[in-house]
Simulated assay, not measured.
Amino acid sequence: MALTLGRMSVNSAFRRAILSLNYVKGQRFNSSTSNKERKTTSSGSNGPVVSERRGAVMLIGINRPEARNAVNRETAQRLTEELSAFDQDDSLNVTVLYGVGGNFCAGFDLKELAHGSDSLELEQDVSSGPGPMGPSRMRLSKPLIAAVSGYAVAGGLELALLADMRVAEESSIMGVFCRRFGVPLIDGGTVRLPQLIGLSRALDLILTGRPVKAHEALAFGLANRVVPDGQALQEALELAEQVSAFPQLCLRADRNSAYHALFDSTSFNQAMQYETDNGIPVVIAEAVAGAAKFSSGVGRGGTFSKSKL
């Protein structure tokens, strides 16, 4: 089979795919904090954000349980630094975002906002700086899974929407609670939520600000898994490890193509072309070797959690 695409050779297509997969890595905002400084300031147990590496999976926790993990400026900065570092680290495949102490995130810290709009230092150009919640304007090149417990509301909901998947505990609550205080969704809520669950359901949440329990969130497609209380983080970690075990170039190409079709393509044909341009090189890079392993009996029978192809 001659793997060519018009006048573009497979080699040039492969280079284009790699550039495309790394393109979203440019959708981050530079931080003045070095990696060494980041580990000191944000990974300690007393910091507003904690992180822990588990093999090729990174756990990132919002650590302000006394404020239901509401995000202030320092927390927003730390979250941006942690997720940017994850995205740049080629040895990491998946990250899990969670809240310490029983709540995912209650949104932006309104006590800080009460001091006046000047305290926010908002960057209006979304391509030039982070959002109020920190990493909400980022487009990660690798999967993010949210482990949702307790409240994930207002800006906390927007952080959960940044994730590719959400594992929610049975007693968890999601919602646009900022509706009652006149605080707008400026961390991607009006952009991601309609695409995720449809305009009608999104407007139901956006206009009413009502609480959404876990099983309704699951029915909406807002949650991907519902687990007993206290198990979201462990379930999310196991899910992340499963995703991390798959061939990563193929996984990221498919993920990137799905996001491109949803947010960037202007037509069906353009989306299909993008999928093809970025999929064909993966056939050479991973699929041929994967097919050979499958032929030898590896990975058959749907044993995805144990697959090391």
Rank of each mutant, 00 (worst) to 15 (best):
N224D: 15
A214I: 02
G189L: 06
A258C: 04
G175T: 00
T266G: 14
G230Y: 03
P143K: 11
V49M: 10
N269Q: 09
V94N: 07
A56R: 15
S267D: 07
F294I: 12
A163R: 02
V282E: 05
G302D: 13
F14E: 13
R180D: 00
D118C: 01
Q195S: 13
G150S: 11
F86K: 07
I60M: 10
P135S: 04
G209W: 10
V282M: 10
V227D: 06
D125Q: 06
V243H: 02
S45A: 12
E241P: 03
V50I: 10
R225M: 10
K25V: 03
S31Y: 06
P135D: 05
L161I: 01
G131Q: 03
E241Q: 15
L83P: 08
D89Q: 06
L21M: 13
K25N: 14
E170P: 00
F220E: 07
A258D: 07
P247D: 02
V283F: 11
G44A: 04
K36R: 14
S84C: 06
G189Y: 06
F304S: 11
R15N: 12
M8R: 14
S136P: 07
V153Q: 09
N46M: 04
P65Y: 06
E275S: 11
T40K: 15
I173M: 02
F181T: 03
Q88P: 01
V167E: 01
F29Y: 15
A232D: 08
V282G: 04
R64A: 12
T41D: 10
E235W: 01
G134A: 05
I173S: 00
S117Y: 08
V57H: 07
V183R: 01
A292M: 08
G47A: 15
E241G: 04
G131S: 15
G116P: 12
A289Q: 13
L309Q: 14
Q273H: 04
A146V: 08
F263G: 00
S31I: 06
D90P: 05
N22T: 09
D187H: 09
L120R: 08
N278Y: 02
K308W: 05
M165I: 00
I206V: 14
A147K: 13
T208P: 05
P132D: 02
G102C: 07
G299N: 07
A147G: 10
K213A: 07
R210V: 02
R166W: 00
E169K: 00
P194K: 08
D118T: 06
S51H: 12
M174E: 00
K308I: 11
L122Q: 09
S296T: 08
C178Q: 00
R7H: 10
D277I: 04
N30K: 12
R73H: 05
R179L: 01
D87A: 12
R180T: 00
N278L: 03
V191T: 14
N72W: 04
A56V: 05
V71L: 07
S128T: 00
T33F: 12
L19M: 09
R225T: 04
A292F: 01
S305A: 14
